[in-house]
């Protein structure tokens, strides 16, 4: 039995320690907001936060996380102000096309904006480059992140 801190709750799961976090989230806990993409940490669609940093849950064994670190999934950000700003910015310019990669894009964007409230284009590209989008919405993702920074009143 392993204990994990997920979205503010302490959760006990009966899995092998080498089970990837994504399997625990989706198959054990039924939290399907986080998607499966490549399975080898190359596409970023399964991104969640561990202690605020974006991680690829498909390649992170739960045994490595431990019972103290704080896991946040896309379901756990309902009341988060940065997440609310990102949601609004995404809707304002209609970032999404097919949408499959977007949970990962949004989690990566939130982590970036919490770390750097007003990122330069170069910082956006560096931090978001591990998140692939087969529809090619990259330009709108970058614009939406810029809009969040502007709407929060951070001087460019």
């Amino acid at each position: 039995m392993l204990t994990l801190q997920i979205n503010g709750k302490s959760v006990e799961v009966d899995v092998d320690p080498d089970t990837p976090l994504l399997w625990v989230l989706r198959d054990v806990l039924g939290m399907t907001g986080t998607k499966y993409g490549c399975g080898i940490a190359e596409c970023g669609v399964c991104t969640v936060h561990v202690d605020g940093s974006p991680v690829r849950s498909c390649s992170l064994p739960v045994g490595l996380i431990g019972s103290q670190k704080v896991i946040t999934t896309i379901e756990g950000l309902q009341a988060d102000p940065v997440a609310a700003a990102v949601r609004k910015a995404w809707l304002d310019i209609d970032v999404v096309q097919c949408g499959y990669c977007q949970p990962g894009q949004i989690m990566a964007a939130i982590a970036l904006l919490k770390k750097i409230p007003n990122p330069t284009d170069e910082q956006i590209e560096a931090d978001m480059s591990g998140n692939l989008c087969r529809c090619g919405t990259y330009m709108r993702i970058r614009a939406a992140i810029r809009n969040v920074a502007a709407a929060q009143g951070v001087n460019p």
Binding site: C43, G44, V50, S53, V55, R56, S59
Partner: peptide, 14 residues
């Protein structure tokens, strides 16, 4: 490479 190694090489999660 950054998907796992991060832009600063510190390693994303492992």
């Amino acid at each position: 490479c950054v998907g796992c190694h991060l832009p600063d090489g510190s390693g994303r999660q492992n």
